[in-house]
Write a protein that binds this DNA or RNA. Structure first.
Ligand SMILES: NC(=O)c1ccc[n+]([C@@H]2O[C@H](COP(=O)([O-])OP(=O)(O)OC[C@H]3O[C@@H](n4cnc5c(N)ncnc54)[C@H](O)[C@@H]3O)[C@@H](O)[C@H]2O)c1
Ligand SMILES: NC(=O)c1ccc[n+]([C@@H]2O[C@H](COP(=O)([O-])OP(=O)(O)OC[C@H]3O[C@@H](n4cnc5c(N)ncnc54)[C@H](O)[C@@H]3O)[C@@H](O)[C@H]2O)c1
Lengths: 203, 203
DNA sequence: AGGAGTTTGTGAACGGGAGAACAAAACGGC
DNA sequence: GCCGTTTTGTTCTCCCGTTCACAAACTCCT
């Protein structure tokens, strides 16, 4: 979040900013921001603030997005198409190297300049491009088996859009994006608003 | 998450389950699950477990998804199309009532059986269908103004896909889904794996 | 009917994140 | 060169979510 805020400030021409400004831009408390940044090192100057470009680079380096990360997307349906066409990943340090789908009818397609390839090609692609991050956008029933294949092929980080709990070995990271649950959380608060007006809070 | 796990168990024919089973299905600790459920009431039976269907209904009622929530999606680009076509929302208590876009060229389109309408229709739709939940899938630059319009129209819950911090009045809930940040978190752990092998953890 | 075996519900301990507050450091003006 | 001002880095405290552990409650078998 800080990285994004800093990029925004840099684009706006700001060269220096205080923790207060940056915190406001990122939508967090300034004390928390300072503490977070202090874990990376002392990149600020007391009485002055932070150099936007310098701090941006330091955070990018810490996260590891100064290099480009190759990514494969599996399941080129509704969501897979949107992800493949999304330009924002590219500009944030990620490069989609392959689109895979189990359905042979999809293999004719070209999406975002990439051929949709057979899921069978997974191992070869992972090996060739040294891919360590995989995105799962298949139906829920297929997600676990896709994850297993990914892990076997050498992928060690998975972003899962299917509404399932994935089981993976130690050493493999999984993050899930669950849109239905997001909506349900909103619905819950919404329901409470109509029952007890004037009592609202959100994370 | 529990709701989803229970639905899965019910579809699999399970009528009764222990906190241990349910926790395993949902991917959490069983003590946490029991404590969470205890906030809703004492719906279990000691020595037996929980009645799947009964508990499922109780959680759905608590969340507020026994009724259908009308939802509007603004920004029918790559992501908006995917969301509009997604059938999973419908089955989880949400009904997309309108698709809005500022681009007149999009207004000819029919997506998922719905006309893409002008953003100007927002107020009328919100009033007519008593919409309280809005989804923002526009570019980041437009997100804040769309949010303002939504709030003015009477929407009090927003799901935001644009990579921006939204500012809204008290009483309005915002949740954001930020895919780039998810990937960056994975990249960070990935980088650390290659530096210090054998030290990994994920949320 | 009673005891053994299960499983829930919850009190207590633990851990960690978030914010308030302040000392240390840098800058600028005189 | 010194003092006031600004802002960072960090300590301390508070609070909340998570987990452990166990008594209470229920079932089933004898
Ligand atoms: N579309 C959305 O907006 C949305 C929203 C929330 C969650 N999701 C979830 O994302 C996932 C994808 O959604 P979608 O709408 O794109 O579905 P979809 O049905 O449009 O696409 C799924 C794709 O996965 C492919 N596939 C199926 N099994 C496969 C396998 N074993 N290996 C490789 N590819 C396989 C199918 O051929 C298809 O192209 C689903 O789990 C869905 O629940 C989607
Ligand atoms: N596509 C993805 O997979 C993806 C992934 C992560 C984040 N996002 C974010 O989601 C948002 C949408 O992404 P996308 O790829 O669908 O973009 P897109 O450009 O394909 O679609 C954006 C749509 O919003 C419409 N729009 C623009 N201004 C508007 C306004 N003021 N009011 C109403 N509609 C307006 C445009 O006409 C267009 O149809 C972006 O903020 C993007 O950063 C997308």
């Amino acid at each position: 979040m800080y990285l994004r805020a800093l990029t925004g400030l840099a684009e706006g021409g700001t060269t220096t900013c205080s923790s207060e400004e940056l915190a406001a831009t990122a939508g967090v408390n300034s004390a928390k921001l300072r503490k977070d940044l202090s874990y990376l090192g002392s990149y600020g100057t007391r009485g002055v603030g932070y150099d936007v470009e310098y701090l941006r680079y330091q955070i990018a380096r810490e996260i590891g997005v100064t290099q480009d990360w190759p990514v494969v997307i599996v399941g080129i349906g509704n969501l897979g198409h949107a992800l493949a066409n999304y330009s924002g990943f590219r500009s944030r340090g990620f490069r989609v190297v392959a689109l895979l789908d189990a359905d042979p009818d999809r293999h004719d397609e070209v999406v975002a300049g990439l051929d949709v390839r057979s899921f069978e090609d997974l191992e070869a692609i992972v090996k060739e491009d040294a891919v360590s991050i995989g995105v799962i956008a298949t139906p829920a029933v297929a997600a676990q088996s896709v994850a297993d294949r990914m892990v076997a092929a050498g992928i060690t980080s998975i972003l899962n859009f299917a509404p399932t709990v994935l089981t993976v070995p130690d050493g493999v990271d999984v993050r899930k994006v669950d849109l239905s649950i997001e909506l349900q959380i909103l619905a819950y608060h919404e329901q409470r608003k109509s029952i007890a007006p004037g009592s609202e809070v959100v994370s």
